[in-house]
Amino acid sequence: MTGNKKITEKLVMIGMYVAAFITVAALFTVVGYVYVKGIGAISLDFLLDYPYRLEFGGIFPQIVGTIYLAAVCLLFAVPLGVASAIYLSEYAPDNMITGTVRFFVECLAGIPSIVIGLFGLIFLVHYLGLGISLLSGGLTLGFMILPWTIRASEEAIKAVPGSYREASLALGASKWQTIRNVVLKNAYPGIISGILLGCGKAIGDTAIVLFTAGSGLEWFLPMAITDPVGSLTVYTYILATQAHTEAGILRAFGASLVLLTMFFMVTVTALYLRNRYVRRMSGW
């Protein structure tokens, strides 16, 4: 090998290191910046007070609202999604129709959340008259993560080796007994991991919540499922774009910090479960 070639190889290697470094740096810069800027806002008062006059007070209703929204969303999407996944992968005949259905599900998984938010606004909020509310917001978030839940659950179910099903059936177990005791029992870490990833999406979504759940600055907790509800994302968005004082920006950072922390807790759990699941399926 000539010296020139060697130098080229070196340069390319360095280039790859730089690219990888930039990727990691992007994450740490964004997260680090938010944490450094936001930590000053965090106090018990901030976490437990109600907001007032746009940029004062705390974010208690926003934290609770974010959790409520995620809960309603999961209550809707998880049973539907997991049941659909079980049916599609274990019962449905493998033909054109299921193929088409699967293709649609995959396409819908890619629909921008803004489009689903618009649907929620027009259909749920206006046509059905559910108003800007916890219910509208939770359901619309549910529409968004439904395809993801189906897909993640189906993948987890498919990863369970067919030989387990055969073994169970050969022992005289019925189809449902086999699904419950062998398939789901082995697929559940994967399913839960998929659900948690969906939950992270729901927590982090802004556009849908802005359209269907509330203006973000709600100074009250919802008393009914038809009440508007605040959320950390919309709160951050409104303050970031409309507050012009230090106090407002600081609160936006504080809210981002809380949001990121919630998001990380959910996602890290999901990734941990998934890794454990992958290892189990490969025989450890």
Partner: peptide, 20 residues
């Protein structure tokens, strides 16, 4: 079919114990 498979057991080509 369930009673049948109870009476007729089967052992497969590759060992396939459940991960339990």
């Amino acid at each position: 079919v369930i009673q049948l498979r109870k009476r007729v057991g089967m052992v497969f080509q590759h060992p396939n114990p459940f991960p339990m």
